[in-house]
Design a protein around this nucleic acid. Structure first.
Lengths: 167, 167
DNA sequence: GCGGAATAGATGAGCCTTCAACTACGCTAG
DNA sequence: CTAGCGTAGTTGAAGGCTCATCTATTCCGC
């Protein structure tokens, strides 16, 4: 049912040298990883959005702000922390501002900079959403895996992060 | 640096019963998995798009079609195979049609149905893109992991798929 | 202190996704 | 045959993301 996929061994020698095609085992591993991560993220985002009106992307922004001293953070730092482009974050913060959950404030140390500040309403929204989110992660991820699988998941994730890097 | 994250232990007892918060280890595992899958998918999509003009989403559609008899598939089946909503697929196929890579054809067995058919131009585009995609998957995923990690990744992915299921 | 390069962030157009209709066809019971 | 329901697919509006561009500020060397 998980049907083999992608990467039909097309014409030999297209870019530079023979492509290193995936064998059947590799394709299964790649597909399983890709499908499971997409489905899990979709599911968590959907459940969170429907239950609380907060998408996972917004949730991450609120969480990041809530964890800092003073519940505020420079825009660029926040973007990096949320794996977001600056433009995307700027748009997102504007929308959160409209909801009254975040406000912008000029950065005292650097006239170019802006601080995104979590408001009390924003914090309250986060507090309401957190239990929904954690229950999703638990039921769809941790409840499904053995402790060994969780350890392996973390190991694999951290290995990949060293390559893909924080940058 | 991977800083602990999300799920600030907010107010006790918000929805029904005390939320099953994540401990520090679980948060690290969750973060590593989330970040690595997001970064990897972003990276692959970006590289493929820039090198070939084909996003990963479009690529998946072309691959799915290329693997069938007659290079054609019912819209709904294709949507399911690509983890896409019907609406999303319908829009995407319209755009692929504009590029001349896919065409629609009424399904002979069912007057309601449509078949998406991969054109020769579409197949050629896929052939050109495949080596780029496979090289990305290899260099950013398989080259980074040991055989044991690959086996574990597949095992974890398949376990999660059984839960998230093709439903 | 002044000119140029670099950095921080905002903005708008265009594409993509989602959601809620909406159309069209098929299936079944009377 | 036909009414009503379910299924297949499309459509358009609204929101979100990307990319290129633009403004404002700081940093650096002289």
């Amino acid at each position: 049912m998980t049907a083999d996929v992608s990467l039909a061994p097309g014409d030999p020698g297209t870019p530079s040298g023979e492509p290193r095609w995936l064998d059947a085992e590799e394709q299964r591993a790649w597909r399983a990883w890709l499908y499971s991560s997409q489905l899990l993220q979709d599911r968590l985002d959907r459940e969170l959005t429907h239950a609380t009106g907060i998408s996972h992307a917004y949730y991450e922004i609120l969480v990041a702000l809530s964890e800092t001293e003073g519940r505020m953070m420079r825009m660029s730092e926040l973007a990096e922390r949320c794996l977001s482009s600056r433009s995307r974050l700027s748009h997102a913060v504007s929308r959160l501002e409209e909801r009254g959950w975040v406000r912008r404030q000029v950065c005292p140390d650097d006239g170019r900079g802006q601080l995104a500040v979590l408001t009390d309403d924003g914090f309250a929204a986060l507090e309401a959403a957190a239990p929904v989110h954690v229950e999703g992660v638990r039921s769809h991820l941790f409840d499904q895996l053995s402790p060994e699988q969780v350890a392996a998941m973390r190991d694999i994730g951290e290995t990949l992060l060293r390559h893909l890097g924080p940058r």
